[in-house]
Design a protein around this nucleic acid. Structure first.
Length: 105
DNA sequence: CCCTTGACCAAAC
DNA sequence: GGTTTGGCCAAGG
């Protein structure tokens, strides 16, 4: 069970479809909190880098954010999925934002 | 249990 | 439009 806040973040991120992205803020909001920074921390603690598409998580201002393997690698992955990026910034990222399913209306 | 850290955010300059 | 400041929350030492 989600013992820690991090587990919740991973569960949500794992639901992100290919070609879609989200922001740290969106995740925090989906969890009903404002721990944007805590979400980022969870990513850094991400024990399943190859199972959790954390590279699909970006900042709210459109910046690619950070990545354990480096921003370059993150950008490459996103571009590989069809996300247009320029100068480390997502182009029209708002258009690719993934909507999380709410357990209840 | 107190203090520091962090893949952040929004506003101010 | 890029840089700096303060604020927010959770996890780790």
């Amino acid at each position: 069970m989600s013992s820690t806040f991090n587990e919740k973040c991973y569960s949500l991120i794992k639901k992100i479809q290919k070609g879609k992205i989200t922001t740290y803020k969106c995740i925090a909001k989906a969890l009903g909190t404002k721990a944007y920074k805590a979400v980022g921390n969870a990513m850094h603690n991400n024990p399943l880098l190859y199972k959790i598409p954390c590279h699909r998580v970006i900042k709210s201002n459109g910046d690619v954010g950070g990545f354990v393997l480096g921003k370059k690698e993150k950008i490459k992955l996103l571009k590989s999925e069809g996300i247009p990026i320029k100068s480390n910034k997502i182009q029209n990222f708002n258009k690719f934002l993934f909507k999380f399913q709410k357990t209840s209306a």
